[in-house]
């Protein structure tokens, strides 16, 4: 049993590496992972100079009470803060594509009948797929972790302490859970959809809903503010609609939950959310995949574009 599951997982990873669209997205993601450290470093350098210049101007004007540099106390990991946004945007979309292409591959190739005439059960097959997706995403996050770790060490000349390294590891661990949720969402729609395009667009619609619609309904934040890793959680406007919407939707707003955890791990921001909504989402969507594959009609598995 374990052998067949492992065979499916292995084949999954091999096929991902051979896919041009996946390689393209992976390249964008890893580039952004390295680039976010560079952006953080370059911005931090500039801001230091801007502060120095500001102090100069203020002293010249005879102002004596000069505020402390607000960036003096920022933790080293905060230069990676853009990564929260990149996982939230690129990572999740890439995960959808990974999950989608994983099951669509068999349906497109028309090999479902052969596969399920072998001694492998439907749930073993989907478990193999999920395992493959997990390993692929884990690999991506491990590479991103290494890139972040070394870019801080090299660019910033700062060797991470154990607690900082742990925070960075925890951040990529949380990112893995977040990306897995979207990947399994893609997998679910690839199992149940009748057309390949619908199988791709349906999870993208969910992605838009989770990433943009939910936060807007609970906090009325501008989308630009949603994408700025610096902006902290603002309270919702004080009116009935938002209070009701917030109490109902907020616990389910998994993107806000992820961003908040990410921020607190990288910036030491205290407004943290528990991890459990993310985990609950992941379990629900993974369960849906098993349910979907149970209902999956092998004899009508081939899919239209």
């Amino acid at each position: 049993m374990f052998f067949t599951i492992a065979t499916v997982s292995k084949s999954e990873i091999r096929s991902l590496i051979r896919q041009k669209t996946f390689v393209l997205m992976l390249a964008v993601f890893l580039f952004m992972a390295s680039f976010s450290a560079y952006i953080g470093w370059s911005t931090k350098n500039t801001i230091r100079s801007v502060y120095a210049q500001t102090v100069k101007e203020m002293t010249a004007q005879g102002i004596k009470e000069i505020p402390n540099n607000p960036f003096l106390s920022t933790p080293p990991l905060s230069i990676l803060k853009n990564m929260v946004v990149y996982v939230f945007l690129i990572g999740s979309l890439m995960a959808i594509i990974i999950g989608h292409s994983s099951f669509i591959r068999e349906r497109r190739a028309g090999v479902s009948k052969i596969i399920f005439s072998k001694s492998i059960g439907k749930w073993e097959f989907v478990l193999g797929k999920m395992g493959g997706i997990f390993l692929a995403l884990m690999l991506i996050n491990v590479i991103s972790f290494a890139l972040s770790f070394f870019s801080i060490t090299i660019i910033f000349s700062h060797f991470l302490s154990i607690s900082e390294a742990f925070n960075l590891l925890a951040f990529y661990g949380t990112s893995l859970v977040y990306m897995l949720f979207f990947a399994y969402l893609g997998l679910f729609f690839a199992i149940v959809s009748k057309s390949e395009s619908l199988a791709l667009l349906a999870p993208v619609m969910f992605w838009i809903f989770i990433s943009f619609v939910m936060p807007q309904l609970t906090s009325a934040l501008d989308p630009t503010a949603l994408l700025n890793p610096t902006s902290i959680q603002t309270p919702a406007p004080q009116n009935n609609f938002f209070q009701i919407a917030q109490s109902i939707i907020h616990p389910f707003s998994v993107s806000e939950s992820y961003k908040s955890i990410g921020r607190s791990l990288l910036q030491g921001d205290s407004s943290s959310y528990p991890l459990f909504p993310l985990v609950v989402y992941l379990i629900v969507v993974a369960g849906s995949c098993f349910y979907g594959v149970k209902q999956f009609n092998i004899c009508e598995a081939e899919i239209d574009q």
């Binding site: 028309g110 090999v111 399920f116 005439s117």
Partner: peptide, 14 residues
Amino acid sequence: RKRIGYLPENVKFY
């Protein structure tokens, strides 16, 4: 399934 082999109509592969 351990004991059978199957060739579907218009067989397809990866």
